[in-house]
Design a protein around this nucleic acid. Structure first.
Length: 547
DNA sequence: CTAGGGTTAG
């Protein structure tokens, strides 16, 4: 153990062409002790002018970040100064409509339309796109707006926007409305309803365990003027596999293999499906079947096998398959190596991950952003913040552009070590390098803020999220409710819970249980009743299939 | 159109 550990630094030194220089601010920050328990506050702490509750640590704001934070907290939707007047109208329109849609809980699509009618909004494709993105979790506002926009004279939704709306309805599990819209598209000009539309339909149905309905959608493709070809079949099988039913995918394969021609993708999708459920026998049988059809197992087939063995942490088998594929003239690529490196890192086998990186390099494979992310993750997991930082810093020097996962990984590491300044700075930098944050980017940050009771920063993050057209999903609310509950802020937990339900999201059982339990133990019976009433409404709506 | 990234809390 110890010898392995000792060997790592030298490997790591060899890895990096440019050694890290200690003056890098990011690195200094990571090593700076944030000292959360220290009674002595660092000299640069700024005291907020808003009074905070004694149980809140809002006062902590890093001076250089404070203006950035304040701008979002106090003005979540600033209108960007734009010179061109046409652009100004659009930007203004988006903000004005956003405000209007958020203003009150609308009870019907028509109510939304009425509210919109009262203003003289000018509709454009860009505006509709922005609103659909912003309100993709809010059925009544988003669909009410979509219908209203459709009826505006001089404006017609593009096929892309119809597809986007179909996808949103599927995401919101309103399959009745989704099908109505699909049928409506079929009646419009050709070019509206395409395979692209039906892929969204099949994916959303599969994801919601409506596998039979997804297969029915495929069967009916020709009625909508879409070909039932190899590509369509593969997309259906892939949707079924991703919707956790390799069995349905296999049945579809058996049913259509004589009428629709197959390609290597068809087999790889099934191999992936069998690997996903850990059925190596069927994965191997499918590989044999693949050969009988004249296709050789390729890097996709083998990487699926390797990934499954990685999940089992069966690295002996992983190395075996690596040898096997090379023996069959199929070389592992960056994806294969990343899969194994990350699994090793997760399993705490950092030096093995590093060795594999070197092996990859000696094979002449150039590291891309995911490879670097896997390295960074492994180093972070092993507590080697400085080295993780070095690798992150090395990326641009090697001509590799950091992507959203690279940032997510770095932010996760920083948050896990309570380096909130670093984490926030990374988020800020993402905006500057136009690497758009995703919901997952915020999750570790939100978790950390809840834990440290940074309510002001929490508020800032939520505003920042919205400005990036991201709205919290069930997972986000889960983190928020659990996080503030554990910090004893039950009132805040209740208001997050209410938001979640009003958004039409279904809280997880564990979330309800935790919140109700906490409220009960604190004797907050009125709040507890409120939560239970909210839950009853959710259940009722679901049973009735209502909006 | 097929394989890689991040992920609550218990």
């Amino acid at each position: 153990m110890l010898s392995k550990f000792r060997s790592v630094p030298s490997i790591c030194n060899g890895l990096l062409v440019h050694r890290f220089i200690n003056t890098n601010p990011l690195c200094t920050m990571l090593h700076h002790q944030d000292s959360p328990q220290s009674p002595e506050l660092p000299p640069w702490v700024k005291f907020s002018d808003t009074p905070s509750s004694p149980d809140t640590n809002d006062d902590f704001v890093i001076p250089s970040l404070a203006p950035w934070v304040d701008a979002h907290v106090f003005n979540p939707h600033p209108t960007k100064p734009i010179n061109q007047s046409s652009m100004l109208n659009n930007e203004d329109g988006v903000e004005a409509i956003t405000t209007l849609l958020k203003k009150q809980p609308y009870l019907s699509f028509d109510q939304v339309a009425q509210a919109l009618d009262a203003h003289g909004f000018q509709v454009s494709a860009a505006l509709v796109q922005q609103i659909l993105k912003r309100f993709s979790n809010d059925l009544i506002p988003v669909f009410g707006f979509f219908k209203w926009a459709k009826s505006q004279t001089g404006y017609v939704h593009s096929p892309e926007l119809f597809n986007c709306m179909v996808d949103i309805l599927g995401k919101l599990k309103r399959f009745d409305l989704m099908w109505d819209l699909v049928k409506e598209m079929a009646k419009l000009d050709s070019g509206y309803l395409t395979l692209g539309t039906m892929v969204k339909v099949m994916r959303r149905l599969s994801k919601n365990r409506k596998h039979e309905e997804a297969i029915e959608a495929f069967r009916g493709l020709e009625d909508f003027g879409v070909d039932k070809d190899t590509k369509a079949l593969n997309l259906l099988m892939d949707a079924l596999v991703k919707g956790d039913s390799i069995e349905h995918a296999q049945n579809v394969f058996l049913e259509f293999k004589t009428s629709i021609s197959l390609n290597s993708y068809s087999f790889n999708i099934l191999i992936h499906g069998w690997c996903k459920v850990g059925n190596f026998d069927m994965a191997r049988k499918t590989m044999e079947n693949m050969k009988e059809h004249g296709f050789n197992p390729d890097v996709f087939s083998y990487t699926s096998l390797i990934e499954a063995h990685c999940r089992d942490k069966d690295f002996r088998k992983v190395y075996q398959v690596l040898e096997e594929m090379k023996g069959n003239g199929c070389n592992p690529n960056a994806v294969t190596y990343t899969t194994v490196m990350l699994a090793l890192g997760k399993a705490g086998q950092l030096s093995e991950a590093m060795e594999l990186y070197m092996k990859m390099s000696s094979d002449g494979i150039v590291a891309d952003a995911p490879v670097y992310s896997a390295l960074i993750f492994s180093l972070g997991k092993a507590g080697r913040l400085k080295d993780a930082c070095d690798v992150f810093d090395d990326m641009p020097k090697q001509g590799v552009v950091r992507d959203v996962v690279t940032y997510n990984t770095m932010i996760s590491i920083a948050c896990a070590h309570s380096k909130e300044e670093t984490a926030l700075r990374l988020l800020k930098e993402m905006g500057e390098v136009s690497c758009k944050p995703k919901l997952e980017t915020y999750h570790p940050l939100l978790k950390m803020c809840c834990k440290k009771k940074r309510m002001k920063v929490l508020k800032f993050l939520l505003a920042h999220m919205f400005q990036n057209d991201l709205s919290p999903d069930v997972g986000t609310y889960c983190i928020l409710v659990h996080g503030v509950c554990k910090s004893g802020k039950l009132d805040v937990a209740c208001s997050f819970f209410e938001d979640m339900v009003l958004q039409g999201l279904t809280p997880k059982d564990s979330t309800v249980k935790l919140l109700v339990g906490e409220l009960e133990s604190k004797g907050m019976l009125k709040e507890k009743e409120h939560v239970e009433n909210l839950m009853a409404r959710v259940t009722h709506k679901q049973n009735a299939g209502l909006v």
